[in-house]
Design a protein around this nucleic acid. Structure first.
Lengths: 104, 104
DNA sequence: TAAGTTACTTACTTAAAGTAAGTATAAGTT
DNA sequence: AACTTATACTTACTTTAAGTAAGTAACTTA
């Protein structure tokens, strides 16, 4: 997908962008990477998000290995993994583009 | 969305990632940024893509201002705009993450 | 003990995506 | 001249994903 790959389309990139581009996933991932670790906290941080969607999206982020579900006693926390933190950093360029170019 | 924005979630970033994350959009955008400018060329470059989806996605990319539809006589070409080229560059970080981390 | 909280699940409706076929215009073939 | 092929779409219909609403089990707090 990068400019140095003119011939073909990287399937991993494809999967990545379709994972993170699903409805709510970006906002949920952002929340988790900003210290929102409980189900209720994430829900509160993302206005309009339903329990059902949060549940489904957290499972997908878990399957992709970017968010870990940690159970300690009866408390459940969702935390960004090393893979997730790297992804969060990789989204920075996109964030800059969005703020610089979106309205143009 | 960037690490330097701990308090809230950037709506432009949200829109960006949901635009580019829609099914086929990433692959179509990649094709356009790699010299595929005709409807049929893009279609050929993205296996499995239907006419209907290509049509719809090109309209969305056009509305977002990242792809221009250029009509010259009876030839129609789709070209990445300056905004589109900047976006393409911004996706590089994500591409690197995908190749480095996806399988881990 | 009764109401509230957390982290879900289940059932149902609506919107988005997928499949297949059709269309207008024109160029090339027989 | 009639017939096929191509391009760039559009339309109709089916399937999948997302949205809405309510329910649940295991606790905690008043």
């Amino acid at each position: 997908m990068a400019p140095d790959n003119p011939g073909g389309y990287c399937p991993y990139f494809h999967q990545t962008i379709e994972l993170i581009g699903r409805r709510w996933t970006g906002a949920i991932f952002f929340a988790v990477n900003n210290g929102k670790s409980h189900f209720g906290e994430i829900k509160e941080a993302v206005p309009g998000l339903s329990d059902r969607m949060l549940c489904e999206r957290l499972a997908e982020l878990g399957d992709a290995g970017v968010v870990d579900r940690v159970v300690e006693g009866r408390s459940v926390t969702y935390l960004s993994s090393a893979k997730g933190e790297a992804l969060y950093g990789a989204l920075e360029g996109l964030h800059h583009w969005a703020t610089d170019w979106w309205d143009l």
